[in-house]
Structure formats: C-alpha cells, structure tokens
Nucleic acid binder design. Structure first.
Length: 937
RNA sequence: GCUCGAGUGGCGGAAUUGGUAGACGCGCUGGAUUCAAAAUCCAGUUCUUUCGGGAGUGUGGGUUCGAUUCCCACCUCGAGUACCA
C-alpha cells in the first residue's frame, strides 16, 4: 500500500477537531508554555505558501513542548479591522463585517489543511464587539491615568486631582504637554470644572491635541510614522503631507526610558532591539539657554556636546521657530521671509531627499554666549528640524559636520577648540582622546571631564541643565476610517467624556457610505444614529442631540494597532464577559514565551504592545511588564516570477533566450503556466487572457523559455503559490517539512516547488519502512546496534536543532536516518515508536497514523518524549581520525563518551601511533571529543 | 552617511568554544527496471590534473601545528534608519 497522504491527513484533522486534542487548560500540574504567532489580517487574497512559514515553525515548537511535558497554549485569531476591507466596501458597498467574515472562513479552511495544533476554542477577532469592548476599556483606563516621572509609573488621575487640590502642580513631576502653567492648590480650587478638565487633559496618557499629522489625502486618513515608508504611505504608496488636526494621542514618550532599558531583559535578536533603540533615539546632553542681545527674548538649544560650547560660531534656528519673526532685524526681514516661504513650499519628502543643498539666512540678531558674553550671529536653516529637541541648535563648526558645511557655505568663521586636531577641511566629531583647548575653564580637559564640568557650570549659573532627549514621539491614535474600533467618547462643550464601563461595547454604527462626508468629516459622520443619551445610556439618533443630555459621539476610530497591542492576553481567557483577562488566567500564563512573526513590526506593533503591557502592569491589571519574552522573526518566502517578452508594439512574444537586441516589454505571466525547466505552456498562455489568444511566438528549439526574477509574492505579479494545491498534490506533512527545509527560518528565501519531491520522497521512504506491500509490518525483534545508533544520533541532533530553531537541518537529519534505516532493513518497533514521536511535530499526520498502528489509542500528542530520550540512550561509538601535524593518517575506534584524557591515552598507546612517533615525544596532543585527535610532533 | 546582517559547488543550503569543507535536498550524468513513459532503485557529481597530486569558503594581509570559523583592511549584496544637534 502506498502512502495515501490525503486520506490520512483528512482523518487526523477530523480526529483532532472532534477530540479537541489541542485544547489548553488554565490549570495544570505541568509547567506552562505559551507559543504565539503574530495573528494574520484576513485579506481577500487568501494564504500563499509564504504565510504559513512562521506558523509551521511555531507549531513544531508547540508540539515539541507538549511532548516534553508542558501545558502549551498555542492559539490563533484574526487582526480583522483594517483598510483593505474598508476600501473594498467603498468600491462595492459590501459591509466590511461581511467581507471580513468570508475572508476569515477562507483563511480557516486553508489553515486547517496544514494540520496546525491551534486551540481554536480561544480564537479572537479584533473586530468583534466582545473583543473591542475591551480595547475600548483599555482606552478608558489610559484616559483615566497620568504618568508620574518620579515613581516611573502610571497612576490614576484621581490621585493627580488629589495632588492638585493639596499642593497645586508645582511639585508634580509628570509627563504632560509642554504648555502647562504653574498653579497652586488655591488656584486649582477656584478653577471651573471645564478649566480643570482642560488641564487634566494635558496630563492624561491619552489626550486630545492639535497636532501636526501625516495626512494622506488619497486614503483620507492620518498615518503613524511607522506607516510611512520613504515619504509615501506603506499601504498603496500614496503621497503624505503635513496637516494640523485635533487628534487623540498616546503619551508613549513617557515610557521611553523603560521601553529602552527593558530591552535588555528580552531574548530578541540584536538587530530587532537595535531598531527599537534607534526608534526611541535616546540622546544625553544639555539644554542651554541663550539670551538674544538687545531684546528680552531668550531661547533654548539642546546639544549632546555642551563641552564644545566655546566653539560656538553661530546659532541656527529652524525656519518654523516661533522666535524668528520676533528677532529678525528690519534690514534682514525680506530675505528671511523669502527663505521661510521657500522652505515651507518644499514638502517633507523633498527636504528629506535633498540633504546636500545647504541653505539658510541670517536674521540680523545676535545671541549672547553664556560664558564669554560675546555676540553670536543667529541664522535660520532648514537643516534644523522644528520637531526635534527645541528646534534650535548651537552651531559648532569645528565639531559637527553639518555646522561645518554651513559655515563654509556662508563663509562663517570656524574656531578650533581641539588640541592638535586640524579642522580646516572637516569637522572633528570624535570624542574619546580629544583634549579641549581655547575654552577657558574647559581647556586641557578630556571629553568626559569637560562634559561633566560644563553641565555643572551651566547649572550653577542657571543657564542650562543636563538633559536627555528622545526621538520617540507620542503616537497619534485617531484614524478617519470606518472599519476600526469606535472611541467610547462623546463631547460635552468640546470636552471629551468617557462612556461608563458597564455600557461597553459601543458598537460601530451602520452607515450608508464608507467615504468621508461632504464636509470632510470621517465616515462615522455619515451615521444617523451616532449620539449618546446620558440618561438612557445608549446610542440614539443624531436628531436628538440637545447638548444637555444627548451628545455627539466621536467620529474617529482607533488605528490598526489598538486591537493587536493586547490580544496576547485575551487568548488566556478568551470569551470572559466580565474582564479582559482574569487575574488567575493571566498569572498562570504570564506572557508569551515564544513569539514568531515578521520583522516589519519591529517599531510598530512590538513597541505599542510593550507600551500597553507596561501601562496595564502599572495599573495593576497585569503581573508582567513585557508581552513577549523570546521573539523570532521568520524571513519572507519570496516568489519566483516568470516573464514573457512582448516585442514593442506587436503581439509577438520572444523566448527569453532569443531576445538579443530586440526592444521588448517584460510581462508577468502566471507561474502555473510554466514548468520546472522554465518552459511556457503556450496553449495555456493563449487561453489565459483574451488579448493573448492570437499571440505569435518566437521559440527556441520549439520551446518558449520564460525569464525569471525573485520578488515578493503577490497576486498582481502572478507568482503566488497556493498551499492548498501543495497539500492536495503532496500532502500537508510534505508542505510543512519542505517549508522548514527551504533554509534558515529567519532568512528570506525564494519558493521553488521543484525541490519539494525530495522531501516528499523522504516521507514515502519513511512509510515504506514499516509497510510490506499493502500490509503494515513492524518487527517485534530487538533492533540492531546500528539501527539504534542511527536512532539515537537522530534524537540527539533533532532535539538540539529544535532548541536552536534550526528546523532546516533537522529535516536533513530525518532524511539521513531514514536512508540508514532503509539500508539496514530496519522495521523494528523499538526504533519506529520513538521515531514517530520525534517526527510528530514536523509531520503530525503520518506520525499519528504510525502511532495508532503501533497500537496506541490516544493521540501522539500525549506521548512522553523524555521517556524515549532516556530509554534509547545507547552507547555509541565513534571513529577518531588521528593526524600528525595536520596530515590525517588513520582512525581509531573509541567510545564517544570518553573524556579528553582517556581518548589521548588510548591514542598514544595505539601501535600505529607509536610507529609514527618512533620513540620521540609529541609536542602537543589536541583532542576534540567526538571529532578529532591531532598530534603535533 | 550611520547601525545591523550576509558573501561557501549549477541551485537551496550544511559545518563556528578553530579540527576530515561542501552534510541533506534539487538539478545533472550513467546504469537497473519498462514495449515505452512516469514512478522507483543503484552509482557518480567543487574545480583542475600528466591520475602522483594541486587549488579551493568575496579580495588582500595576519594569528595558529591547523582558519569557512578569530583579528585588520577592502569589495559586493541585503535589511533598518536618516539633516536627531
């Protein structure tokens, strides 16, 4: 009987579903282990072979951990709010909820065919009211909290109000908006309620603010920084402009230091931590105040090099700096205004692309040096960004290349304050080993000493202080979309109020159109029932708005990352109607032990999720400060696109080998029309699209050869390979093993269906090992020593590989093992039983089938792996090559578990060694246990 | 520009506390089986060679008895980030 994988796989998938084999329980004697995949957005295109890569890896690990005796939580769900469903709705009028539901059904069908061990009883969907109820709840928690910088902790706003009532805000060290005025307890008592609300809003962890945002006109929404790639939107590639809008923001900047420090606790790749560090962008330096001469104006600069303060030759303000118009002298005004206008016209993108051109203008004003009291000219220049630091810099051309370039361009002086360094050609940015000169009290000091000294001096004279800056900005949380979580917010006199917790969820209203309204409001502006009745506590018709009991609800919705920032906790207690996750469930599962997903989320999802976890932990809702202990980025599986070449202006296609000098236009052709040797199915191609029906071909030896290129897999490039087809043709077990076999998990690699036969043949050989013709046949006899050695080698290697996530080499190890067992004609139960357990994580269906035929009545999932490791520890032997001065001479057979000294002794006592040495004493004997003995004579 | 990562046969890729480079698979070549094909099985497959060998892990140096692995310089590719003061 041959290997009927379709039948076997169907049988076991049904068995697992019916018996809820992979259901995890929130109490167990066993230790817990939580394996999570980044949940997918269910797009209309369905899954291609690239999607399951990470899921297969995590599934192997989850199944392995079960064998190892862990209580494993391995759930799956859908990040189901998002743009594509909404855009589809705009085009077709179909409700996004319906599209989403259909897409999810399709995804589920595809996922089920691959035989994953997900606990589907815990499935979550971010677009379900039962789920987004808790997203709204977290939003309210954030609104009701402020950040205490002293305690480095989020605290309830009620405690802030107490502080204000007892001592005002002068001593409160909180993360807040920049424009806070000082007030006393008495002042606070006298403020009207609305005034108090206004002030509190500046402290809340989610707050309304007029912010300059990245507006994408084509998408009709704002985008977060991480949703913009090269100045255009990540989705669709549309241009993005800056625009001022009132938006909800998240005070993530308050958590910058903790987000940075705690990276050290995580088992993530260095490159990923590095991107987060970059994104947070900590720089330590000083804030220094400069007085404008002949004026009462003063401005601050931020610098990481206060030690170079005596090298300041000029100041540069961002053109948008508020002081510019105030300090510009009359004779300079025209030039300065022209420059400001010119820079304002240039888009962010142009400004970014063009970093070579140096431009600026002199304001005519001078600042006073804090120590020398000398006048310093104040310039404006667009190399200084309004949004970073204070929007002003002290320019030290001898120490900073941009300042140097600017000085040379405008012919400004360059003072050298470094000892024995030439700065005439370029700035000297090095710190270590540099001695400061020409700098009054800093002269003769090294960088570190000078730095400390100058900050001390600045603080003493009240002209500055040591300061740390972060690049991390607060995250804009409003989106002008329909298909997202509605904010649980209504407005009273322009002030936001939260809906009471017990009335959540606030469900998305129905709308006629999913586009923004004619007056430019978000799509929810189209809803006719979108007002909140504070007496009935329910949504009512907009007609009833009276601003005393019925109020307008918020029209924005939350961004995509809202639902994905906390979903890992919902799996622990999915469906709990009373709380987002129960304390018991959360304390049992803690957080994710292993998280697998793509690296594109390095600075978005992974940072926001860490932020919300820290916040919820501060407020006592969670017992952990980090969501994901260990994280692995799986590399993308790329598609191998195929091209046909059309002669310019004709319906004639030239084989890739015949192009020569012809002018051709490459056209993507569906990869299913091309065979493994790059030959096009010409008849199929003609039928593929009507415009090709009459096409003519220039062939090579009667064949049309296509061109190939490796690209991202996508529908529009016709290079998508569907996992269903692979499962149909080769089986899920083959697909799973082949995806692992393709290469290292973390590396990007092209898909190539041709190689799959190797893995498929391996499974067939494995099957043949215990089948004689049509009959299942295993021997009850003891296995030979060789077979046991093969088995044990495999157990050892595969176990090590799984622990290191080197799944590709473990597939090779299985192949070697089966080849050896085939050669040994081994069909012993003694070998096959542990082998079934070992291979089950990779190829679960064939393993279950074998396990059952071996007489077990429970799923192989319950098999205990350490038991097999113990039982089959055989004493293996190894041949040690012995070489003299690097030249290999002969081998000696010795047991593997000898110590270095024992091996050395055995080798030196061997007759052949004595012959080689012929009486002389070796200089050195190098022994590598398990590998080699090298004798240096 | 900066940060991180990677360069090994025709291809995907193995091998690092420094120890027989090219495991395993694809492809290719030859053979068996077959009327034939598919499938399967067996053998071979880094290059070069006067069949003794010789060369070889991006390039050039270095450390070492021994380097794909460690160090220095350079080249190429990929990812991230970018006037961040």
């Amino acid at each position: 009987m041959s290997y009927h994988f379709n039948k076997i796989e169907e049988k076991w998938q049904k068995y697992w579903a019916e018996n809820q084999t992979f259901k995890a329980f929130n109490t167990s004697e066993k230790p817990k282990y939580y394996v999570l995949d980044m949940f997918p957005y269910p797009s209309g295109a369905g899954l291609h072979v690239g999607h399951p890569l990470g899921y297969i890896a995590s599934d192997i690990y989850a199944r392995y951990k079960r064998h190892k005796g862990f209580n494993v939580l391995h759930p799956q769900g859908y990040d189901s709010f998002g743009l594509p469903a909404e855009q589809y709705a705009i085009q077709t009028g179909q409700h996004p909820a319906l599209t989403t539901q259909n897409n999810i059904a399709r995804y589920r069908e595809q996922l089920d065919k691959i035989g994953f061990s997900f606990d589907w009883s815990r499935e979550v969907r971010t677009s379900e009211p039962d789920y987004y109820k808790w997203t709204q709840w977290i939003f309210i928690q954030l609104f009701e909290s402020w950040y205490d910088l002293e305690a480095e902790k989020s605290r309830p706003v009620s405690e802030l109000v107490e502080l204000f009532s007892s001592e005002g805000n002068t001593r409160v060290n909180a993360a807040c908006d920049a424009d806070i005025a000082e007030f006393s307890a008495e002042d606070w008592a006298q403020y009207a309620e609305d005034e108090k609300e206004q002030i509190l809003l500046k402290y809340r962890l989610t707050y309304l603010a007029e912010t300059e945002v990245n507006w994408c006109p084509q998408l009709g929404t704002v985008l977060a920084n991480d949703e913009i790639v090269n100045g255009v939107s990540e989705r669709g590639g549309y241009p993005v402009i800056r625009k001022k809008m009132t938006q909800w923001s998240m005070r993530i900047s308050a958590f910058a230091e903790r987000l940075l420090q705690d990276l050290n606790k995580l088992d993530w790749t260095e490159s990923l931590k590095e991107s987060q560090r970059n994104w947070i962008g900590k720089s330590v330096g000083a804030q220094v105040a400069f007085k404008v001469m002949n004026s009462d104006a003063e401005f601050e600069v931020f610098t990481t090099r206060p030690d170079t303060i005596f090298g300041v030759n000029f100041m540069t303000l961002a053109p948008e700096h508020e002081l510019v118009s105030k300090i510009t002298t009359e004779d300079r005004r025209q030039e300065v205004e022209a420059y400001i206008e010119a820079t304002a016209k240039r888009s962010e993108r142009e400004r970014m692309a063009d970093v070579k051109t140096i431009s600026g203008a002199f304001t005519g004003a001078y600042a006073e040096h804090p120590f020398t009291k000398e006048p310093i000219p104040i310039w404006i220049g667009d190399y200084v960004l309004a949004g970073y630091g204070t929007g002003a810099v002290m320019a030290v051309p001898c120490g900073d290349q941009r300042d140097h370039d600017f000085a040379r361009h405008f012919d400004l002086p360059i003072t050298n304050i470094f000892k024995d360094v030439d700065v005439s050609q370029e700035a000297h940015a090095g710190k270590e080993g540099t001695v400061i000169a020409n700098s009054d009290f800093l002269s003769g000091l090294e960088y570190k000493e000078a730095l400390n000294r100058v900050i001390l001096e600045l603080e003493k004279t009240g002209q500055g202080y040591g300061k740390t800056n972060y690049r991390l900005r607060d995250a804009v949380f409003s989106r002008q979309r329909y298909w997202g979580e509605p904010f649980p917010v209504y407005y009273v006199n322009g002030l936001p109020k939260m809906i009471d917790l017990e009335h959540l969820p606030l469900r998305l209203p129905e709308v006629e159109k999913y586009l923004p309204t004619e007056s430019g409001e978000p799509p929810l502006g189209n809803a006719t029932n979108w007002a909140w009745d504070t007496e009935k506590n329910e949504v009512v018709s907009n007609d009833k708005i009276n601003n005393s009991t019925v109020f307008q609800l918020e029209l924005n919705t939350m961004p995509g990352w809202a639902g994905s920032s906390w979903y890992l906790f919902r799996y622990m207690d999915a469906g709990n109607p009373d709380v987002f996750v129960s304390e018991e469930a959360q304390q049992y599962w803690e957080n994710v032990d292993l998280y697998i997903g793509g690296s594109e989320h390095a600075t978005g999802h992974l940072l926001y999720s860490r932020f919300w976890t820290k916040f919820l932990s501060d407020r006592g809702k969670l017992s952990v400060e980090e969501p994901f202990k260990k994280l692995i980025n799986q590399g993308m599986i790329l598609g191998t696109s195929a091209f046909v070449y059309r002669l310019e202006g004709e319906n004639v296609f030239i084989s890739a080998t015949q192009i020569k000098g012809n002018n051709v236009q490459p056209i993507h052709v569906d990869v299913s029309l091309v065979n493994a040797s790059d030959e096009l199915d010409v008849e199929g191609f003609k039928k593929w699209r009507p415009e090709f029906a009459e096409a003519k071909f220039v062939l090579e030896d009667g064949r049309y050869i296509v061109g190939r290129e490796v690209e991202k897999m996508s529908k529009s490039k016709y290079n998508v390979v569907n996992p269903d087809e692979i499962c149909e043709r080769y089986g899920a077990d083959t697909l799973r093993m082949y995806e692992m076999f393709l290469g290292p998990l973390e590396q990007a690699k092209p898909w190539n269906t041709a190689g799959i036969t190797g893995v498929h043949n391996f499974l067939k050989k494995f099957w043949k090992l215990y089948h004689n013709g049509a009959d299942f046949q295993v021997s009850a006899k003891k296995a030979s020593a060789d077979s046991l050695k093969s088995l044990h080698k495999t157990i050892k290697k595969v176990t090590e590989d799984i622990e290191d996530f080197s799944f590709n080499t473990s597939v090779s190890t299985f192949m070697i093992c089966v080849n050896e067992l085939t050669a040994q004609k081994c069909s012993s139960r003694e070998v096959l039983e542990p082998l079934a357990v070992l291979i089950a994580p990779y190829a679960p269906h064939i393993a279950e089938e074998l396990w059952q035929k071996l007489g077990h009545d429970k799923s192989i999932t319950t098999a205990n792996y350490p038991e097999f490791e113990e039982k089959y520890l055989v004493e293996s032997k190894k041949n040690y090559p012995v070489s003299f001065n690097g030249k290999m001479r002969f081998t000696i057979e010795l047991p593997m578990d000898l110590s270095k000294d024992e091996i050395e002794k055995n080798v030196l006592e061997d007759e052949r060694t004595k012959n080689q040495l012929s009486g002389s004493t070796p200089k050195k004997v190098i022994v590598v246990p398990g590998k080699i003995v090298n004798i240096v004579t």
